[in-house]
Nucleic acid binder design. Structure first.
Length: 311
RNA sequence: GGGCAGGUGGCGGAGUGGUCAAUCGCACCAGACUGUAAAUCUGGCGACCUUCGGUCUUCGGUGGUUCGAAUCCAUCCCUGCCCA
């Protein structure tokens, strides 16, 4: 911990400029980038996820980008475990890990730990989902109350997924998830130093709108067509993603082109807003007001200065 | 010039005498979030008051009717469609 165990963590909403700033940072200190992004990890989703360009990835080693086929399940927990290992490897190479990402839960799982719980049990989940479709959600809540009253009381009944997860954990471990949350946090072996990129709201929204248009110009629709040709459908969690979902709907004739563009932008803005809500509560983050800098290099320089001075 | 339809909160669009500051959708704001998280979900949204609650100004303009009007009447302005 402490000296030599510092990890630079760069967060911020979509379209805030994380990727560019991270690349600039890598020029200032020997480092490797760990992407904490639940969608950039997937192959074939390039344009819509604003994945770092191949040239950028050649400049700096990137981890958790382009590593899984879209049909593979992935999760914050899995990310936390694997990224922890990768951080150790980067330290072993005497470099600084730079965690870059907008997936709040992924970042949290990595730098604060997530409880050592079991991974998803697809069959068990499917069975519970069928019961929910059959209108048995109240029964499930009752079952949860019987084995884990804490969780039953805490979990919002409008979020079936959380109920399912709690029952799943009990099913797999015999212990209430609420107890595991308290007792089984994974230890953190490094010192994260957090920075967040932020913009005036209107400026951010303008950037988002503009980037959506750029993605379409860059061939997002063709990217979706290619996915379709490979047999991928929007059912897939990896494709339940801003940009892809709207284009799929457009391709199926469910919405017009203009409507698709409108929704794409709107949902991107909403996503950015949720990201801000998530990150705002983390008091450790030092916010970088992007308007105050000329370019990404200057932002990186400022962050670098603060990072080196920290601890 | 004539006929018809209509002007409601940022937008769309309900409401047709009291229970309307005004259903609802969108936009927007705020929040939650421990293994699907770019997901999933909650709240707010005329102004003012610290909250329960209360006060004030709103439904194109003006003037009426009425105990009471977004809702009825008159008139004026504006918009769309149709006939000239």
């Amino acid at each position: 911990m402490r000296q030599g165990r510092k990890v630079l963590v760069l967060v911020g909403p979509t379209a805030s400029g994380k990727t560019t700033v991270a690349i600039e940072l890598a020029k200032l200190l020997p480092s490797e980038i760990i992407s904490a992004d639940s969608r950039q990890i997937y192959q074939l989703l390039d344009i819509g996820t604003a994945k770092p360009a191949r040239t950028q990835r050649q400049e700096v080693p990137h981890h958790f980008v382009d590593e899984l086929p879209p049909e593979r399940d992935f999760s914050a927990g899995e990310f936390g475990e694997r990224a922890t290992q990768v951080i150790e490897e980067i330290f072993a190479r005497a470099r600084t890990p730079i965690v870059v990402g907008g997936s709040g839960l992924y970042v949290q799982a990595l730098i604060d730990g997530i409880f050592e719980g079991p991974s998803a049990d697809r069959e068990f989940r499917a069975a519970l989902e069928r019961r929910i479709v059959a209108g048995e959600l109240p029964h499930l809540i009752e079952e949860l109350r019987a084995v884990d009253p804490d969780s039953a009381a805490r979990i919002d009944p409008t979020k079936p997924r959380r109920i399912i997860r709690a029952l799943e954990v009990y099913h797999l471990t015999g212990k209430p998830i609420s107890q595991l949350h308290r007792e089984a946090q994974r230890a953190i072996t490094f010192a994260p130093v957090l920075f967040g990129l932020t913009w005036e709201r209107q400026t951010l929204y303008d950037r988002i709108d503009k980037r959506c248009e750029e993605m379409l110009r860059a061939g997002l629709i063709e990217e979706v067509e290619a996915l379709e040709q490979r047999g991928y459908t929007p059912r897939l969690n990896a494709l339940n993603t801003v940009g892809y979902a709207e284009v799929f709907a457009y391709r199926r004739g469910e919405i017009s082109y203009d409507e698709m563009v409108r929704l794409f932008k709107q949902n991107s803005r909403r996503y950015a807003k949720r990201q801000l809500t998530w990150f705002r509560r983390d008091r450790r983050i030092r916010w970088i007001q992007m308007e105050e800098y000329e370019n990404a290099a200057q932002v990186a320089a400022a962050i670098h200065r603060l990072f080196v001075a920290d601890g």
